[in-house]
Design a protein around this nucleic acid. Sequence first.
DNA 1: GTTGTCGATGTAACCGTTTACATAGCCGTA
DNA 2: TACGGCTATGTAAACGGTTACATCGACAAC
Lengths: 349, 349
Amino acid sequence: MLREVTIRDVARAADVSVATVSRALNGIENVASPTREHVLKIVHELDYVPHSGARSLSSKRTDTIGVLLPDLHGEFFSELIRGIDLAARARGLHLLLSSSHGDPAEAAAALRAMRSRVDSIIMMSLNAGNDAVVPAAPAGLPLVLLGGNRRGPGRPSFVIDNYAGAFAITEHLAGEGKRSVAFVAGPADNIEASERLRGYRAALKCTAGSFPEWIVQGDFGEESGRKAARTIGAAGPPDAIFCANDMMAIGCLEGLREAGIAVPDDVALAGFDDIPITRYVNPPLTTAAVPIAEMGRQALECCADIIAGGKPELHHIFQPELVIRASSAARSWDATANLRGEYHDQITL
Amino acid sequence: MLREVTIRDVARAADVSVATVSRALNGIENVASPTREHVLKIVHELDYVPHSGARSLSSKRTDTIGVLLPDLHGEFFSELIRGIDLAARARGLHLLLSSSHGDPAEAAAALRAMRSRVDSIIMMSLNAGNDAVVPAAPAGLPLVLLGGNRRGPGRPSFVIDNYAGAFAITEHLAGEGKRSVAFVAGPADNIEASERLRGYRAALKCTAGSFPEWIVQGDFGEESGRKAARTIGAAGPPDAIFCANDMMAIGCLEGLREAGIAVPDDVALAGFDDIPITRYVNPPLTTAAVPIAEMGRQALECCADIIAGGKPELHHIFQPELVIRASSAARSWDATANLRGEYHDQITL
DNA sequence: GTTGTCGATGTAACCGTTTACATAGCCGTA
DNA sequence: TACGGCTATGTAAACGGTTACATCGACAAC
C-alpha cells in the first residue's frame, strides 16, 4: 500500500507546524485567516484525509454511531436504516451497522465489539430477553433504545404505542353490529407482540357486547397467518380477524381465500405496521401505520445530542395511525381520543 | 467518561509484558500455552477490549468494510445489506454504511471520508455518471463494484445480466400469437435501465413477425408506471407490456385497471426484479428474479479475499431467472439457452 | 564446561493525531 | 523604554496498540 499523506506532510508543505494544520482543519482556536486558507489549500492539493484511528486515539471521538438490529428482513428495517442514515448524513456522522442478533449473548458480544469504534449506539431490542443485555452496555457509551415497549434503566428510548394501536384496530373491527373479533398473536417473547395482544384484550373488554376472546398463536411470519386462517375458518369464521402484524394478515388473507371465505364480505381483516405491501394486496389491508423512518431519525438525533453533551428527554412514544382500507368496513377512529391519552394511560412503561 | 482498560493494565495484572498480551490476543507467534491462557483469563476478568483506533493506527487494518449505496428505499437494498451483513458477521468484519449519494460529487466525498476507516469498499453505482467516481478512489483501497453493467478499470464487479433478463421476458411476452409488446423504460442515465431496454430491443428483432418497437419513458417509480398505462391505453393497448422494473409494473397494473383494461386477458404484463410485492398484487406479476442477497454476500467475500491478499476473479455476472406468474400467459423459457450463453455474448461488459 | 540454537518473553520505537504548555512577536500604556 | 497582555504559532507529550529487535534460559552437541 502506498504511504498515505499525513498531517506532517501537510505541515511541511504549508511551512507551518502540525498543530496549526490540526487547528485549521478542526476549525477551533484562533488561527489567522490567511494561514488557515493557505493550509486548507495545501490539504486539498495533497488530497489529505486525517487518519480516523489516530484521531480517535487522541481525541476519543469516532464520529460514528453504532446501529444494532435484531434482523434485517423486510421493508421495516430498510425504512428504519433510511431514517437513521438520513440524520447521520446531515450531522456528518458515520454508521456502523450490525444485525441478526438472535440471542442476547450475541447481542452482548456485538455491543462489546462496537465499544471502541463508536461514540454512541442505537439498539433495537424486540426480544424480551435482550433487555438483559442493556445493563451490560459499557458505562461510557450512550445507548439509545428502539422498540419494545420497555424503558431501559435511565436510557432514552423510542417506542411505538403498540397498545394504543391494537386497541384502536380492535375497536374499529368491533364496530357496526359485529359480534366477534379473533386475534392472531405474534411470538410470545416479543414485546411488541404482547403489547398488541394487551391492546386487543383491553378493547374487547370495552365493547358494549363484551366480545369473547379468541386468540390463535402465530409467529409474525406469513405462513403462520395462513395457518391461522385455516384454524379460524374451520371453527366457523368470526366477524373480524386482527393479525398482530401485516405479514400474518397477508398470509391470513390467502388462507381465507383458499378456504372460500371472502374479505371483507364474510370477515373483516386488519394487520399492523403498514408495510408497503398492504396497499397492493387484494383487498388492500386495514392496518396501523408506524412512522418508522421518523423514529430512526429521531433516535439518531438523540444520540448526536447526547454526544454533544445534551441531556435528552428519556421516553419518546410514537402513536400508530389507523389506516382503514377495503379489508374492513370503514368506521372513523377517534384519533383525538388517542391524542388526549385515553388509551395511553394504560400503557406499561 | 471512565478510563478504559488498556493493554498495559492487562499486562500488569497478568504480570507479563504488553507484547505478550498482544501476541496472546492476536493468536500469532509462539506464546506458551499456560501464558496465553492466563492472559486470556485476565482479559476476560477485566473485560478488556482493544482500542480499534490504536490498533488500526499501528497495524493499518480496521476490520471494517465500507458499503456505499445510492439509496436505501425499498426491499431491494434491505436484501442487499442483509446478504452483505451475513457474510461480514461470518468473517468477523464490521460494516460502515453510507447511502443516498445522488450525485457523483457526493459519492466521491463519501468515498474519501471512508478512506482511513475501512479496509475495502463495496460500492453500488447504478448511475452512469458515478462511474467517473471510481478512478478517483484511493489507490490502496480495494473497491468492489456492484450493479450497473459496466466494469471498472480492473476492479472486481458483480452485475446482473439485465440484457439477458430483459431479452427473456420480452421473448416470453412475444409468444403465442402476440403481435406487439410495449416497453416502459427506466431513467435514461441508469445503466440497468438501459441494458434492459437493449434486451427488449434485441428480443424484438429476433421475433418471427419482427414486432415494432413501442417505448414509453418512465423513471422506475410507481407513478410513472401508472402514467405509462394511461398513455398506452389511450393509443389502444398492445398485446403485452414490459415494465423495466416491478414498481413501474405495479403502477401500470393500477393504471390499466383504472382504464378498464384487464390483465392478463386484454394485455399481458411483466416487470423486473422480483421484489416481494410482486407475489401479492392481483394478478401476481411475471418478472425476472435477481439473487440480491447472494450478490451482496459474494461481494463481501470478495472484499475479504482481497484484504487477505487474494486475487479474486474480476467479473461476476448473475443471471436473472424468469418467474412466470398470472399476469402473463405461461410459456416455458429456455433457461438452458441462457446458461449456454446465447444471450450472453451480446452483453456489453 | 563451553558454545550454539531455539523458543519464550521483554523493551522500546513507531503509527498519526490532538492539545497543554511554551514562546515569540506586537501593541498600548506607564 | 520597559513591561504586561494578547494573539498566533510552535514543541512535544500523550493516546493504545503492534512488532522489530534484544535478551534470557534451557538444552543439545562437542
